[in-house]
Design a protein around this nucleic acid. Sequence first.
DNA 1: GGATAATAGTTGTTTTTGTAACTAACAAGC
DNA 2: GCTTGTTAGTTACAAAAACAACTATTATCC
Lengths: 150, 150
Amino acid sequence: MRNDKFPDTDGFDLQSFLPFLLNQAAESASIDFQKVYKDRYGMLRTEWRVLFHLGLFGSMTAKQIGHRAKTHKTKISRAVHQLENRRFLKRTRDDQDRRVEWLALTPMGESAYRELRDIAVQYDAKLAGQFDADEIAILRKMLRRLAGFE
Amino acid sequence: MRNDKFPDTDGFDLQSFLPFLLNQAAESASIDFQKVYKDRYGMLRTEWRVLFHLGLFGSMTAKQIGHRAKTHKTKISRAVHQLENRRFLKRTRDDQDRRVEWLALTPMGESAYRELRDIAVQYDAKLAGQFDADEIAILRKMLRRLAGFE
DNA sequence: GGATAATAGTTGTTTTTGTAACTAACAAGC
DNA sequence: GCTTGTTAGTTACAAAAACAACTATTATCC
C-alpha cells in the first residue's frame, strides 16, 4: 500500500487499493465480452452465466447455479425466465421433490452456448496474451483465492 | 485456460475465465469494505469514490473525477449532490469558464475521508496479508495494466 | 458578430438490481 | 396427523444504474 507518488497522503494510493483496483480491472476486462453477449445475443450478465453453467455442467437446479455463481436466487430466477422465453432452456419438475426444477439447455441454447464459449476462449487468450504465462498462472491462482473458489 | 477437471468441455473453465474470475474476486474483495461505507456512512459506491478523489487530490471538477474513476458523469453528478446535501463537499464556480465547478471537501468531508481511508488501509493490508509480498506486487501490477491505469 | 458545434453538468425516463414478502412443497417433532 | 420450521422458487416494491435528452456556457469559423 506504500506509494511513492503521493507521500503526502499517508501512502494511500487509490489505484492500488484492491477493492477499487479489482473492480476497475474487472470492468475493463469485461467490457468487450459484455458487448458480445449484450449486443449480439441480447443477454444480460446473469443470463450468460446461467447459460454457461448449463452448457458446462448439463442439468442443474436454479439453486445450484446460484450457489456456484454466487448470485442471488431472484437474479437467477429472472435470467431463467428470460432464457426460457427465448427457448434457450427448458425446465422439468423433480418427481421426488416437486419444489425443485431441473434446468437444461435446448438445442438452440446449446448452440448459443458453444458460440459464446468459443468467443470466450479467444477473448481470454487475448487478455492473457499480454502477460507471461507464469504471471498469468499466478494471477489466476490469486484471483481464485480472493474469489473464494477452491 | 486448459482445465483438467472438465476435459469434455473443450478445456473451458468458467472459474478461470478472466472476466468472470475478475468480477467474482472484485465482488468478494469489496463486500466487507462496502458494508463499512454503506452501513456505517450511508454512502453509495460512487460517493466514496468521489470522496476519496477529493480527499486525495484536493480540488477537482466532476469531469476530472469521472475520467479518473472511469465513471459516467450522471453518476458523478448524483454522488456530488448527495455529498453536498450531507455537507461533505462544497462547489465553487470557475470564473474563467462558468460551466465548470470546482469541488472540495468541507472539514466534515475531510474528517469522513480520513476515517474511511484509515479503514481502507487496514482493509487492504488484511486482503494482501494472505499472500506473499512479491505475489501481491505482481498482482497489483497486472491489475493496473488490465484496468488501463499506467 | 452570428450561426454552428462542442463541453460541463443536470434532469427525466427506462432497465436492472436489491430486498423483503410471498407461495408451494417438504421435513421434523410431538 | 397436525403444528412448526425449512427450502425452492416467484413476485412485488424500492433503490440504483443506464441511457438519452436537456440547459447553460464557451469555442470555432465563416
